[in-house]
């Protein structure tokens, strides 16, 4: 019994720690998806590619500056902006053209996914490339040491989440976003620049994903196919949280992130993902609109 505790408890602790870091990053990515859905009522399938672009730009910044700290800072500042511009561009010239019809948008964003992914493959190459972490220190716990950078990732993601919350609650942009979400027509009549709001929300969503990409890349490597997994995980989070509910998204991200962490310690990651999907099925059987969702079509 005692040995069981000695062996298992540290593992569980590590799992919870890893899971929490994952959860923070996941919350950041899923929040972008959720904001876009909430305000624009569309699902952005290319969201994972924005994340991947963040990671890839981070690699370029690291190589261009040849310094892990400056590269990281540069990527942190530049990547979300560039990705934001790419998002605005695709919003203006593609999504607006299909009038944000939910299904057309999905097809169009699948197209954008392929385009971004293949262009990256052509410019970046097929191999996975590592990026050095800007800081290196280990936090020592009684049983093991833990990467300080991972904790930094969690802290920075948490700060971003707070920033978004302030943006939504305290700024004019946030007010406009909420107004547009409530009723597009009425918001337009009351002088809310709804078109600009759409573009900003799409850029903000993409920027958040890119930011997550920059944060994550020193933990894992950058490659052109890395967008799919966070996309699927964000889908799971957004569905469980309830489409369009910000609060639900954050709570679900922690639920999924931490349970994924724990399951991954005891089972293979592939199985963990399968179990996560089954979890979604269970939620849907009980409550088709998600935990905090309104009933959207």
């Amino acid at each position: 019994m005692d040995t069981w505790i000695e062996e298992t408890l540290p593992m569980v602790f590590l799992a919870v720690l890893d899971g929490t870091v994952t959860a923070f990053v996941l919350a950041l990515i899923a929040l972008g998806l959720s904001l876009v859905f909430g305000v624009m009522r569309i699902v952005n399938v290319s969201h994972g590619e924005f994340f991947m672009l963040g990671a890839v730009f981070s690699w370029f910044a690291y190589h261009w500056t040849a310094d892990s700290v400056w590269g990281f800072v540069l990527a942190l500042l530049i990547a979300p902006v560039i990705v934001g511009f790419i998002a605005v561009f695709s919003e203006r010239f593609i999504l607006r053209k299909v009038e944000y019809n939910p299904e057309s948008t999905i097809v169009a964003t699948i197209g954008i996914l392929y385009i971004i992914q293949q262009l990256t493959l052509m410019g970046f190459g097929p191999e996975a490339r590592p990026v050095e972490a800007p800081i290196y220190f280990r936090v020592s716990f009684p049983w093991f040491g833990y990467s300080g950078y991972k904790l930094l990732v969690a802290v920075m993601s948490g700060l971003c989440l707070c920033g978004i919350w302030l943006l939504l609650k305290r700024t004019k942009l946030g007010l406009y976003m909420r107004a547009t979400q409530q009723d597009y027509e009425i918001a337009t009549t009351f002088g809310v620049p709804t078109k600009k709001i759409y573009a900003s929300v799409f850029a903000l969503g993409g920027g958040l994903a890119a930011l997550a990409g920059v944060l994550v890349v020193p933990i894992r490597q950058a490659d052109h196919l890395m967008g799919l997994e966070p996309l699927l995980l964000s889908f799971i989070v957004v569905i469980i949280g309830g489409l369009g509910s910000i609060r639900g998204t954050i709570i679900a991200a922690f639920l999924i992130g931490i349970s994924d962490g724990i399951i991954s310690v005891f089972y293979e990651p592939t199985l963990a993902k399968m179990l996560a999907t089954l979890f979604v099925v269970m939620i849907l059987i009980i409550k088709p609109s998600g935990l905090f969702g309104e009933n959207y079509q």
């Binding site: 699902v43 489409l243 199985l271 993902k273």
Partner: peptide, 28 residues
């Protein structure tokens, strides 16, 4: 019986994830 409990966008996401689950199962 499961997936059709959802509709619209949720249905799409659910189909996508089920498809991915079978793919993962084949790999696993």
């Amino acid at each position: 019986l499961f997936a059709l409990r959802t509709s619209g966008v949720s249905f799409l996401i659910v189909t996508l994830m089920f498809g991915q689950t079978l793919y993962l199962a084949i790999l696993y």
